[in-house]
């Protein structure tokens, strides 16, 4: 397992399309729920323990190499009520798959691209990419969990003109939460072979889904989601 590969995959500059998405932050800013560093921290903590936990579980399960990547993908569809968020997750999955295949060529990634020419859900692709990079389920879970907070934090720097040092300090303060979420995700993923996909976390964040639907209908916006 290569620590360097983890840095490459987790780097915000990894060219997988994330820069165009705010992770719900743009809708939350418009609604007045995120106005500065303290409310950004609340938003991120909430997203981490819901969307982040679910994504981390899926990524860890995919990284363990479970045959059922199609079933994992279906589980995301079943879990995500918002069509706008499902669409965004598939779009990001497709973009990550392109970057992953170019970076760590692997038959498993090629097979995933064949099965999902228009994109599998991003956490499933993330776990499979981590595996192709020689990483394990914990690495995949950390990447998935971290992305669910790093995306909104950088988006809010652009949306509010928030001090970038404050935004980065918010991420640092979420460190213990990230550890907790990643550990729970990995434990759940290890139970999948015995218990099936029901072992994976299924927390939901209704306000994120409502905000995602509203945001998709805006005529003017900075971010795609």
């Amino acid at each position: 397992m290569s620590r360097a590969a983890l840095l490459i995959l987790a780097d915000g500059r990894f060219p997988a399309g994330g820069h165009a998405h705010s992770g719900g932050a743009e809708a939350a800013v418009k609604a007045g729920r995120v106005t500065g560093a303290p409310s950004l921290e609340d938003f991120c903590r909430g997203r981490l323990h819901t969307t982040g936990l679910v994504s981390a579980g899926l990524a860890a399960a995919a990284a363990l190499g479970a045959d059922g990547r199609a079933a994992l993908d279906e589980a995301v569809d079943a879990h995500t009520r918002s069509l706008a968020l499902r669409t965004a997750a598939r779009k990001l999955g497709r973009q990550l798959l392109r970057a992953g295949r170019a970076t760590w060529p692997s038959p498993e990634l090629d097979a995933l691209a064949r099965a999902f020419p228009k994109g599998a859900h991003q956490p499933v692709v993330l776990g499979t990419t981590a595996r192709a990079a020689g990483l394990g389920p914990a690495d995949a879970a950390y990447c998935a969990a971290y992305e669910t907070v790093s995306g909104p934090a950088t988006a809010v720097v652009r949306l509010l003109g928030l001090d970038p040092f404050e935004a980065t300090a918010v991420l640092a303060r979420l460190g213990a939460d990230l550890d907790e979420v990643a550990a729970a995700a990995v434990r759940a993923a290890h139970r999948v072979p015995e218990e099936g996909l029901h072992a994976l976390p299924a927390a939901s964040a209704p306000l994120l889904e409502i905000g995602g639907e509203a945001h998709a209908a805006w005529p003017v916006r900075l971010f795609a989601s």
């Binding site: 060219p15 997988a16 399309g17 820069h19 165009a20 779009k91 497709r94 973009q95 392109r98 970057a99």
Partner: peptide, 9 residues
């Protein structure tokens, strides 16, 4: 330039 994936798609 830096992340061309959406345009390639």
């Amino acid at each position: 330039r830096d992340d061309i994936s959406a345009n390639l798609e």
